[in-house]
């Protein structure tokens, strides 16, 4: 069999997913920590000052990567939701539910750092501006998926499929919400980074580098945290299966 196809099938089965991804945890954590340390030190101490905002802009190195992750993780939840709903794949379920708290956390971090940034720049912690509002609604979407799952404690598989349905509905609605909310555009600065390179705010490589490093670091942190949670999820929902007994005894060093 083709190696990629084989890998794909292996990732679909909880025991081999658990076995394979267990070796990824340490490298992911180290990468996340290392890159965060580099990105924050470079961004907070060595990157040049912004010509308008001075040092206050430095919160961008936390704010923007967190905002990117909040959207990125919801997209993953939506995709895993579709897989869960259509093919009932257990690993997709685990990845979906494992991603929800992390995504909600990144959304909350985006909102909090945005508020802290808003106070010195706009003179207010909160303003009902389009981006802030749609970010807040995104947080509600995360809470909805988590709440739906939590409401069905006695039957986790059913809960996961209902949560998947909520995630899919949210995915369809996300663009509608974002565009409708943009109807009242106001004080939020437009994106500092564009793919075409027409960047207004971020104009030097010395500023961009720590930002991209931080974006990578958050991705690695996400993979680490998501895998840890997915492992726990699988161990919990598959607790009566043979492979769980083996995996646990191997970890604790005892005979099954």
């Amino acid at each position: 069999m083709n190696r990629i196809v084989k890998f794909y099938h292996e990732m679909g089965s909880p025991p081999s997913f658990y076995r394979i991804t267990q070796h990824w945890l340490m490298p992911m954590l180290l990468l996340a920590l290392g890159l965060t340390a580099y990105g924050l030190i470079e961004g907070l101490f060595f990157a040049p000052k912004d010509y308008q905002q001075g040092d206050s802009y430095r919160i961008i190195f936390v704010h923007v990567p967190a905002a990117w992750m909040s959207m990125f993780i919801y997209a993953i939840i939506g995709i895993c939701g579709i897989i869960t709903f259509v093919w009932r794949m257990k690993v997709a379920e685990a990845v979906m539910m494992a991603s929800v708290p992390i995504g909600a956390l990144f959304t909350a971090v985006t909102l909090l750092t945005g508020m802290l940034w808003g106070k010195p720049m706009w003179g207010t912690y909160w303003d009902w501006d389009a981006r802030m509002t749609s970010q807040l609604i995104l947080l509600f979407l995360y809470i909805g998926v988590a709440g739906m799952y939590a409401a069905y404690e006695e039957d986790p598989r059913k809960a996961a499929r209902l949560a998947a349905l909520v995630a899919i509905i949210g995915l369809v609605n996300l663009p509608i919400i974002r565009y409708s909310v943009y109807w009242w555009t106001s004080i939020h600065q437009t994106s500092s980074i564009t793919l075409t390179g027409g960047s207004e705010g971020i104009h030097s490589w010395d500023m961009l580098r720590p930002l991209l490093v931080m974006a990578l670091a958050t991705k690695f942190y996400y993979i680490y945290s998501m895998l840890t949670r997915a492992h726990t999820y699988l161990l919990k929902t598959e607790a009566k299966k043979q492979w769980v007994a083996q995996a646990v005894s191997k970890k604790s060093g005892a005979k099954p």
Binding site: I137, S180, V181
Partner: peptide
Amino acid sequence: SVLIMPLLAP
């Protein structure tokens, strides 16, 4: 309410 508030916002 949590589930459909985001849908009702637009």
